[in-house]
Simulated scan of single mutants.
Amino acid sequence: MNRSAESGGGEGPVVLPERAASLVELLRRHAARTEEQRRVAEENIAALDEAGLFGITVPRRFGGHQASVRTLVEVGAELGRGCGSTAWTTSLINVSGWVIGLFPERAQREVYEANLRARACAALPPHGTSTPADGGQVITGRWGFASGCLHAEWALLGVSITDAGGERPDQGLALVPMNQLKIEETWHVAGMCGTGSNTLIAHDVFVPAHRILSVTGAKQGRYPTEFRDEVLYRAAFVPTLALSLAGPLLGLARGGMELVRASLARGRGISHTFYEQARQAPSTQMQCAEAAQLIDTATLHLMRAADDVDNCAARGQCMPLLDRARVRMDIATVARSSREALDILLTVHGAKSFADGNPLQRIWRDQETGSRHALINPAIATEIYGRALLGIGDQVSPLI
C-alpha cells in the first residue's frame, strides 16, 4: 500500500485504528513465536508496514499520516488486543517518528529522503556522554531498553551535552543511524519479551548539531522544526512520550476480556461447584462486569489525556503544568485499571490461565511488565499530580 496515497484529507484518524483492528488475529497467531524469538515476527512487521501503521506520526511531507496523539493511542490499543510486544514496539517506533518531526527539516530529510519508510527507536535516559567537536558532539555510551531497535534504521539516544568549557548545560537526544551502533542482546525478561528491547552501544560516534534535540527546550515546548503550522509537532513533549506507552496496556486488558468471554461462551463449568456453566454463576457475572468497568475507566482516562494533548497543540499553547501532571495521572490510571481488570479475569478463568499454552498468561506477563515502565509508575504519578494540584513548586521528576 502506498503510504503517500493515503496521507491526504482527514481519513487517517478514522481508518488507521480500523486497519490495526484488522490485524489482531494475525498478531495473535504469531504472538507465541514473537515471544519465543524475542523479536516481533517478520510477518507482523510486514503487515504493519503494508497498512501504513509505522507512519502514524511521520510528516505528510514525507508520505506519512501526521495523525493525532489520539490516533496513536487508539492504534496501540487495537494492536494490544492481539500481541502486547507488537503493539508496544509499533507504538514506540511511532512516537520516535514523532520526535524526529520535532527536529530541523535538515535532520528529517536525512532520515526520510533515502527511505520514506524509515523507522526509529529511542532510549531517552541520558546514559551517554559527549565531547564537543567541530559542528556537533562525539557521543559514547550504553542505552538499555531500546524497544524496537531490531526493526529500526535510526535511534534517538539520550546524552549529556558538554560545552567547550567542560560544563554540561543541557540534556539532548542524539539522532544516530543504527549502522553506527552496536546491539547487545540483553533483553531476557518475564514479559514483553518480543519487544527486543536490547542495549545500544556507541563509541566515539560523531553527531552533527542539527541532529541533537535539546530536551530542556523540548520540555518547555520549544522545538526546532521550521514547520510551525504542523499541529502534531506542537504536542507536549513528555505527555506524548508517556501516552505512547499506555495504548498497548489498554489493548492487553481488552484482549484478555475477549479471551475470557469466548471461553465462557463455550459453556465450561466451575470446578468443585454445581455450576455446569460458569457464565450462569452470579459471581462470574459480577466479576466480568467489574473487569469491564475497569477497562472502560482506563479507556476514558486514556482518551481524555490524548484529547487534552491534541487540543492544546491545536490551540498552539504550551500545555500548563497542572494539565501535564494530570496526563501523567491519567496514564497511571490506565495502568492500574488495566492490571486490576486482568487480575479479575485471571480469577474468572481459573488456574488454567497459567498453562504454558494459554495466551492469557502471556497477556498477564506483558501487562505486568509493560505497566512498570518508569514513566507510568502510579505512585510517582500520584505524587506529581498532588503536588501540582496544591501548587507545590518542588517536583519529584523533571519529566512532566
Rank of each mutant, 00 (worst) to 15 (best):
I183L: 10
P104V: 14
E11R: 09
H373G: 03
R324C: 08
T297K: 05
L156V: 02
V176N: 01
D343W: 11
L250E: 10
A306Y: 04
L232E: 07
V99R: 06
F274C: 07
R328I: 04
A292D: 15
V207N: 01
R324Q: 14
E25V: 01
T240E: 12
P17C: 05
D308P: 00
G251Y: 09
L102C: 02
A253R: 01
G97R: 03
P248W: 12
A314N: 04
A298Q: 01
L360C: 04
A87F: 09
S338H: 03
T195C: 12
L243K: 00
P282E: 01
R304N: 09
I384K: 00
G76F: 12
N358P: 00
V75L: 11
A236M: 07
P398H: 13
A47F: 09
V334Y: 06
G194F: 14
W88H: 12
E185C: 02
R106S: 13
A262G: 04
F274P: 02
A236Q: 03
Q285T: 11
Q108P: 00
R70S: 10
M178E: 07
A381F: 06
S68M: 11
S283K: 02
L102N: 03
D356S: 09
R228W: 07
P224A: 11
A133S: 14
A41R: 04
S7V: 01
D308G: 02
L48P: 01
A46L: 13
C121G: 00
S147P: 02
L156T: 02
I331Q: 04
F54V: 06
L259K: 05
G267Q: 06
E383H: 01
R254E: 15
E6W: 12
V111P: 08
E113M: 06
E185W: 06
N198R: 05
T131E: 14
A122G: 03
Q66H: 04
G165N: 14
A332M: 05
G148M: 14
G10N: 10
M303C: 08
L102E: 05
P132I: 08
T90F: 08
P169Y: 10
L252Y: 14
V111G: 02
G256A: 15
A298L: 05
C193D: 12
E368T: 01
R326S: 02
D356F: 11
G256D: 14
Q108W: 10
V40Q: 02
A174I: 13
L26K: 03
I100K: 03
E6A: 09
F354H: 11
P126A: 11
T299E: 15
A146Q: 10
G158L: 07
G12A: 15
G52C: 01
R106V: 07
V15F: 14
A242K: 06
